[in-house]
């Protein structure tokens, strides 16, 4: 199998100083669903914008469907589909008119256009509201229309940037059902960014965890979870618990003990059996415990393992956010005469 996407040493610097993407390399096999998982501002959207020739790179090379992204942006745009985070449909046009426009822009042959548009409207459950202005559409309908616009020309590679942002769980499930069906039917390669861990876990064949512009881990969801070495028991001692570390390490089955923010993360194959032993060890040393919790391997744990931070959707402004904000602020100051 050949690679549908290859990225080598991608770097994107904003304002000469903020590295939004910092040496990202990976490859996506044909027909795969590949996910970029990371918190807001990690560099996911910037990477996707580089791969779709929306942004030019500071350094690095990339090919998509065998085309050099940075030397062939025009040919590239014809072969890829792109679904943005935000709604980009024209609110003053109907769903059908938006699709017809996209069909013309992406070179769907004129005589195939009505059939293709009808098929997509039907497929994405928009047929009943096809002739309504998009401004009357619900959030879920707009997302489905974005997807229809993105695949109007049956692209070989589909890029999805946080495609289910703002959808309710039902809407998200419906959206992913359509994506997997379309992928089966057309054999598309899908590259997506998300900060929904469950989405990455359930949908992606392989994924990369990206943080501060760098890939910190990559593999299939189960590989990544396996790298945790089993369950994680988090022990929260009252006061200084460092004396507990050697005792915990000595317990049978424990593979690692890592202190983190006043807690101790204990890795072991089966945490439920270990917990009574941990309590026993702490009692023996006279160390009181404030709490103890067990987590089965999940991408939350994987994220924590590789970034040293809890995965939170809202982490406050990132360096990129601040840089973008400052640029806008300066622009608006310069623009005001």
């Amino acid at each position: 199998m050949t690679d549908a996407i290859v990225a080598e040493g991608l770097v994107k610097t904003f304002n000469g100083s903020v590295k939004a993407v910092d040496g990202v390399s990976f490859s996506v096999r044909e027909g795969e669903i590949y996910g970029f998982l990371g918190p807001n501002g990690a560099g996911k959207t910037t990477t996707l914008s580089l791969l779709t020739a929306v942004l030019g790179p500071t350094a690095g090379r990339a090919t998509v469907d065998g085309l050099d992204v940075f030397h062939n942006p025009h040919d590239l745009k014809q072969r890829i589909g792109l679904v943005f985070q935000e709604s980009t449909a024209d609110q003053d046009l109907t769903g059908r008119e938006n699709l017809e426009l996209a069909a013309a822009l992406f070179g769907v042959p004129l005589r195939d256009t009505p059939k293709r548009v009808d098929y997509l409207l039907e497929r994405l459950a928009l047929a009943d509201s096809a002739d309504r202005l998009v401004k009357t559409f619900s959030g879920g309908m707009r997302r489905r229309l974005e997807l229809a616009v993105g695949i109007v020309h049956s692209p070989r590679v589909l890029f999805l940037d946080e495609p289910t942002l703002g959808l309710d769980p039902q809407g998200r499930a419906g959206f992913w059902k359509i994506i997997s069906e379309l992928r089966k039917e057309h054999g598309m390669t899908v590259f997506l960014t998300t900060h929904y861990l469950d989405e990455a876990d359930g949908m992606c064949d392989r994924l990369a965890i990206i943080d501060h512009g760098k890939i910190v881990a990559a593999g299939t969801p189960s590989e990544l979870k396996d790298r945790l070495g089993g369950d994680v028991v988090t022990v929260r001692p009252i006061g200084d618990g460092s004396a507990l570390i050697p005792a915990l390490k000595a317990l049978p089955g424990v593979t690692a003990v890592t202190p983190q923010d006043g807690t101790l993360r204990v890795k072991c194959p089966s945490g439920d059996v270990l917990i009574p032993k941990i309590v026993g060890a702490a009692t023996g040393l006279g160390i009181a415990l404030a709490g103890i919790s067990l987590r089965r391997p999940s991408l939350d744990e994987v994220f924590l393992e590789f970034t040293g931070r809890e995965f939170r959707e809202d982490e406050g402004p990132t360096a990129t956010d601040r840089a973008v904000f400052m640029t806008r602020f300066q622009n608006s100051r310069q623009g005001r005469r």
Partner: peptide
Amino acid sequence: FGTLKRTAASPAS
């Protein structure tokens, strides 16, 4: 509104 972003990402010159 993002509409121009869509057009600019298309093969339209």
